[in-house]
Design a protein around this nucleic acid. Structure first.
Length: 287
DNA sequence: CGCCAGGCTTCTA
DNA sequence: TAGAAGCATGGC
C-alpha cells in the first residue's frame, strides 16, 4: 500500500503518506489523455464522469472539493495506491538499465483506468502522437459525452454507437473514426463483454479485443494493462521497441515478466523524455 | 516538401 | 505466413 491515511479537511480530502507517486510524471507518460496541469503541482481530470482537481504537496494528495467517500470509492483505485511499488522497484533496481529508468521517474505508476475509455483512447493512439490523441479525445467527449463540472464525461458505448462515422468528422480522427463506431457497437450490443476481460486468460482476452477493428496486438496490450490492470502485459510501440533492441539485445529479463507492464512504463517514459539514452556508444551497465 | 507519431487493415506472393 | 503498401491528420 502506497498511502497511510485519508483525512477530511473541510470540503477537501487529503491522502497522507503517499509514496512512489508523482502526478506530473504519471499524466505525462502516455497512458492517459485527459489530465491537464492547472498550476504547478495541480491537475484537473475527469474519470468515470467525476471531475477531479488534485494537488500534490510533499507526501500528500489533496483532492479539492471531493468527499472522502469518492476518494475511497474512485480515486484510490484509479491511482492504484493500494499497490506496493517499493516491492516492485526493489526488483527493478537490480537491473542497471531499469535502475536508470526508475531513478529518472521514481513516482511513475500504472493507472487503473475505465476499460471502455482506455479501449477507445488506444484505438485513437495508432500511428498518432500524444498531443493529437489528447485533442481527439477531448473533442470526442465534447461531441457526445455528458456535461460535468468543468468539461464532459467520456461518452458511453451507447451514445457513441448511435452515431455514424461521418458524424465523428469534427474529431479529425482520420481513418480511426469507423474503428470507434465498430467498438461502440460491439460493446453496446453485447458482442464484446468488457467485464469478462478482467478474468479471462490473457490469450483469450487479447483475442476478444482484437475482434474490434483497429485493435491489433499493441493496442490490445495497452487496453489490458491500463484498463484492466493486467500488469504482465507489455505494449511494444516504436519507443519500447527501440529501447528493447538497444538496451536489452539479449532480451528482457525473465524475472520481470509478472510486472513487465510496469517495467515497460518506466522504460517508455525514460526513453521518450531522454532519447539520448538510446544514443550510440551507450553501454548496458552504466552505474 | 518529407518524415514521424504509443499501428492497423488489406493486399500480395 | 510473412512482408509491404496505404492510411487521415498535424507538427516539425
Amino acid at each position: 500500500m502506497d498511502y497511510q491515511k485519508i483525512i477530511a479537511a473541510g470540503a477537501d480530502t487529503v491522502v497522507e503518506g503517499v509514496r512512489n507517486c508523482t502526478l506530473a510524471s504519471i499524466v505525462d507518460s502516455g497512458q492517459c489523455f485527459r489530465w491537464r496541469a492547472v498550476g504547478g503541482n495541480r491537475f484537473f481530470g475527469i474519470v468515470d464522469g467525476r471531475a477531479c482537481e488534485v494537488e500534490q504537496q510533499e507526501d500528500m494528495l489533496i483532492f479539492h472539493g471531493i468527499p472522502r467517500e469518492e476518494v475511497e470509492g474512485l480515486w484510490l483505485g484509479y491511482f492504484d495506491l493500494e499497490r506496493d511499488y517499493d516491492a516492485i522497484k526493489t526488483r527493478l533496481l537490480q537491473d542497471m538499465v531499469m535502475r536508470e529508468a526508475v531513478v529518472y521517474a521514481p513516482g511513475m505508476r500504472v493507472l487503473r483506468q475505465p476499460p471502455w475509455e482506455t479501449l477507445c483512447s488506444f484505438i485513437l493512439s495508432a500511428n498518432n502522437n500524444i498531443p493529437r490523441i489528447m485533442g481527439i479525445v477531448e473533442r470526442l467527449c465534447a461531441l457526445c459525452g455528458e456535461p460535468v463540472q468543468g468539461g464532459y464525461a467520456f461518452p458511453t458505448p451507447e451514445a457513441l454507437a448511435a452515431l455514424s462515422a461521418e458524424a465523428l468528422a469534427p474529431l479529425r480522427a482520420g481513418y480511426r473514426a469507423p474503428y470507434l463506431i465498430d467498438a461502440a457497437q460491439k460493446v453496446a450490443g453485447g458482442a464484446l463483454d468488457l467485464d469478462a476481460l478482467y478474468t479471462l486468460p490473457l490469450p483469450e482476452a487479447r483475442k476478444q479485443l482484437m475482434r474490434v477493428k483497429g485493435i491489433g496486438p499493441k493496442v490490445a496490450e495497452c487496453v489490458l494493462l491500463y484498463g484492466f490492470s493486467r500488469i504482465e502485459c507489455i505494449p511494444v510501440d516504436v519507443w519500447v521497441k527501440r529501447a528493447l533492441t538497444t538496451l536489452y539485445p539479449e532480451g528482457f529479463p525473465a524475472d520481470f515478466h509478472a510486472i513487465g507492464g510496469i517495467a515497460q512504463q518506466y522504460l517508455f517514459h525514460y526513453v521518450r523524455c531522454c532519447p539520448a539514452a538510446l544514443g550510440a556508444g551507450r553501454e548496458n551497465n552504466v552505474e
